[in-house]
């Protein structure tokens, strides 16, 4: 299966733009996982952690984010977060 194109953007800069296996997004109405080919969704997010799975079964990378929203469209997943802590 093709990989999911994942972008994490904050007002200051574009933090991530890469192809991953799956991302779990902390939506306001519950976490949801996004795989490639996910139906289009737009959701606000609560403060929490994004879990980025690079490959199936791999240990997820966790990114703390604050406020914002996530959009899934045919191109992939875009997370617009107000703040994000990316470990260097």
């Amino acid at each position: 299966m093709a990989d999911l194109h994942f972008e994490l953007v904050t007002p200051e800069r574009l933090l991530r733009s890469e192809d991953v296996h799956m991302v779990v997004v902390p939506g306001t109405e519950g976490d949801f996982g996004v795989l490639a080919g996910h139906a289009p969704v737009m959701s606000t997010i609560r403060n929490g952690e994004l879990a980025v799975y690079r490959t199936a079964g791999a240990e997820p990378e966790r990114i703390a984010i604050e406020g914002g929203f996530a959009e899934v469209n045919e191109k992939g997943l875009t997370v617009l977060a107000e703040k994000a802590d990316v470990p260097a």
Partner: peptide, 27 residues
């Protein structure tokens, strides 16, 4: 346009989005 699911609904997202959009424009 493809059918997009909204979570919560459009109105609520919009209500949250508008002030944020303003901040972004000013930024």
């Amino acid at each position: 346009p493809p059918a997009v699911e909204y979570e919560p609904d459009e109105e609520e997202i919009l209500a949250e989005l508008l002030p944020r959009n303003l901040s972004v424009q000013i930024f």
